[in-house]
Simulated scan of single mutants.
Amino acid sequence: MNSPRTTLYRDKHNGKLMGVCAGIADYTGVNVFWIRMIAFLSMWPTGGASLLIYFVAGFLLNKKPPYLYRDESEQKYWQGVRQSPKRTAREIRANFRDIDRRLAAVEAHYVSSNPRLTAEIERLR
């Protein structure tokens, strides 16, 4: 996926230090508090290596563009795409099937209540 919405960024706007945890939270859809807790608690088992990884990520990751998403629903959509692209594609197909079904129902209702239109369609067949 080449979309800038599927890239991991550091989020300086919502970040505390370099914005790495906020960027991971935005990317995964997990609350930033839990990402920060995991990062903080991982310093002891890793002997401080996670702190080094944090700073390396802070220097390597690009800053999040200011207007990456139009609104909250678009942000949630792209988080879903990053988490499970196949599930998102299934949901989109299901939405289109639902729209098609509702459109067919509207069309059937309109055609059945309009005898002139029904006659015109039959004449064209």
Rank of each mutant, 00 (worst) to 15 (best):
S112N: 14
V111C: 02
D26R: 06
A119P: 00
G29R: 05
D71N: 15
R102M: 05
K63P: 04
V56C: 05
S113G: 05
N114H: 14
D71M: 07
V32M: 12
F59D: 03
R36E: 15
S84R: 08
P115M: 04
Y69T: 00
G47N: 11
E107V: 09
R93F: 01
M43G: 12
T7P: 04
N31D: 15
T118L: 15
V106D: 07
L17C: 11
Y69M: 01
R97P: 00
L17Q: 13
A57V: 01
F96G: 00
Y67N: 15
R87F: 09
W78L: 11
D100H: 14
I38P: 02
R123S: 03
L8E: 07
T46G: 01
N2I: 09
F59C: 04
Y77Q: 07
N31R: 12
R82T: 06
G48I: 05
W44I: 15
R116M: 03
M37R: 15
S50N: 09
E74G: 06
G29C: 01
A39C: 13
G48H: 02
R70D: 08
W78C: 08
T28L: 06
R36I: 04
L61A: 03
A89L: 10
P115Q: 03
K12L: 15
P45V: 02
P65E: 01
A39D: 15
I24N: 08
T28S: 14
N95S: 14
V56D: 01
K12N: 10
V81R: 11
L41S: 12
D100C: 13
E107D: 14
H109D: 15
S112P: 06
S50Q: 10
Y27M: 00
L51Y: 12
R87I: 09
R5W: 00
M18N: 05
N114E: 07
F40E: 08
S3Y: 03
Y69Q: 03
V111I: 09
R10F: 07
V111Y: 03
R10A: 03
L103S: 06
Y54M: 07
G29V: 05
S50C: 09
L61M: 04
M43S: 14
W78I: 12
S3F: 08
R36C: 15
R116K: 14
F96E: 12
P4I: 04
D26L: 00
R36T: 14
P65F: 04
G19T: 10
I99S: 05
Y69K: 01
I99Q: 11
S42P: 04
G15S: 10
M18R: 04
I121R: 05
S113D: 04
R82F: 11
Y77G: 02
P65D: 02
I38S: 06
A108H: 08
